[in-house]
């Protein structure tokens, strides 16, 4: 992954994380953008599932919490890549 690609995912995932925490409706669009930005990366499937869940039932608390978990893991994957994690 190139540094700009990783940084894009980190930025979008971090924005989506805080939107989910704040129960802001912008979380859905941000997750969708992050999922597209992360296609082909380890964070991609995590963000794709998070975006799908939030698109379906954005007001369910369990959905918000599960999407938050996936979003944070995606952020961690992208940050690890930027910090020099060896490919797995």
């Amino acid at each position: 992954m190139s540094a700009p690609d990783a940084l894009r995912v980190v930025t979008l995932a971090a924005q989506a994380e805080m939107a989910l925490v704040r129960r802001d409706t912008v979380a859905g669009p941000l997750l969708a953008q992050a999922a597209r930005a992360a296609e082909g990366m380890p964070a991609g499937p995590l963000l794709t599932h998070a975006a799908a869940m939030v698109r379906g039932e954005p007001d369910r608390e369990a959905v918000r919490q599960a999407a938050l978990s996936l979003c944070r893991m995606a952020l961690q994957e992208a940050q690890a890549d930027m910090l020099g994690d060896a490919p797995r």
């Binding site: 869940m53 379906g56 369910r60 369990a62 599960a66 978990s69 996936l70």
Partner: peptide, 18 residues
């Protein structure tokens, strides 16, 4: 993921993938 799986399923989540 710390949530009731049946609630996630009823919300349309792909619980097997999760």
């Amino acid at each position: 993921l710390g949530q009731d799986a049946s609630v996630l399923r009823s919300a349309g989540a792909d619980v097997d993938a999760l």
